[in-house]
Design a protein around this nucleic acid. Structure first.
Length: 321
DNA sequence: CATTCGTGAAGACGAAT
DNA sequence: ATTCGATTTCACGAATG
């Protein structure tokens, strides 16, 4: 929405240079596949081979929810990406010709291509910028889709930046690390579980878990152990339960924790079970199937958990209702 | 009839090797 | 990388009301 119009401006000065003799590798070679990057009619830098849109501003998807953008630390407005090394770096021309203008053999061409790639990847801050932009875009998109407050997004951004600084992204996809960062932030803020994150993410659950674990270990994130109580309110309101039921469920969960029977269990499943158990004692009513629908926990697990919950609180399941 | 309960096979997970 | 134990899910039929 507003993002589109505001974003274009930063790129305008670049378009002016397009047709000049200024042909640095970073403007002509795709960072992904080494194909030719062309300036398209859509005002974007696009790779002819793989279609990658190099225009970093085009990555941001999803609505911007915060009312004051300046309070949200977005990625830096690529200040002077082309002057960062003050012209000291080696540049390898994109034309496959040597210094005498002779064309290169295919062997030499591939060598030059490799050199270009490495040179660009590691001598130049552009790819970090682009990585960060894409990641923050993903984080924003997922957070918006989950309706997470900006505080969580900010935490996720900070975590991702640290991951990038410490080179923890290697071997993981940007989306996976971005998802993992959001999950970690979400955990710190007692917000959402991985189950809810997965449908918003572009990568599967395993990838998120792997990246999340890596982040945890390498970054020394001190995440509180998952607490089933964190999910009570959301699902209860989803089911239209009264506060009384929530309180009862929280009570039950305390009993489970006191009995030490909560570890190793899926916290969402435990919360679902506690809600079913609590509902047996209040005026709210829901079938196992309905709770299963809301929570994405199978009916079987709800059964097992609500019975466990009751037992931990000294109630025999058979004596209820 | 709707709901709940229990079971066995199969998959996914964390931890340990 | 594989193996292990515990947990979760799926598909089903039985029991309950």
């Amino acid at each position: 929405m507003t993002a589109d119009s505001s974003i274009r401006t930063s790129n305008n000065q670049r378009t002016g240079h397009q047709q000049t003799q200024d042909a640095s590798p970073s403007e002509n070679i795709c960072p992904e596949c080494d194909g030719q990057v062309v300036f398209t009619a859509e005002q974007e830098y696009t790779c002819e081979d793989c279609g990658l849109v190099v225009d970093e501003n085009n990555i941001d998807r999803g609505p911007e929810h915060s009312r004051h953008d300046d309070t949200t630390p977005r990625t830096g407005r690529s200040t002077t990406p082309r002057l960062h090394d003050k012209g000291l770096s080696t540049e390898i021309g994109w034309e496959n010709r040597d210094s005498h203008g002779n064309t290169l053999s295919s062997e030499q061409r591939s060598k030059a291509r490799r050199l270009r790639r490495w040179n660009q990847r590691y001598s130049n801050r552009d790819h970090l910028d682009r990585n960060l932009r894409q990641a923050l875009g993903e984080i924003d998109r997922m957070a918006a889709s989950l309706g997470l407050p900006t505080a969580v997004r900010e935490t996720a951004s900070v975590i991702y930046r640290r991951a990038l600084e410490e080179d923890l992204v290697r071997g993981y996809s940007i989306e996976a690390v971005a998802s993992a960062a959001l999950l970690a932030a979400s955990r710190q803020h007692a917000q959402r579980s991985i189950r809810e994150l997965v449908p918003c993410s572009r990568v599967d659950q395993q990838a998120i878990r792997r990246a999340h674990r890596n982040l945890n270990e390498e970054l020394g994130l001190e995440l509180p152990p998952p607490d089933p109580c964190d999910h009570l309110d959301r699902y209860a309101s989803d089911l239209g339960f009264s506060q009384q039921t929530v309180t009862q469920a929280a009570d039950f969960l305390e009993g489970v924790k006191a009995a030490g029977k909560h570890s190793g269990k899926d916290p969402v499943a435990l919360a679902a079970g506690a809600l079913y158990a609590a509902q047996l004692f209040t005026r709210d009513h829901a079938t196992q199937a309905r709770i299963s629908d809301s929570t994405d926990v199978s009916e079987v697990s709800i059964r097992k958990h609500y019975q466990r919950v009751l037992k931990c609180n000294g109630i025999e399941p058979a004596t209820v209702r």
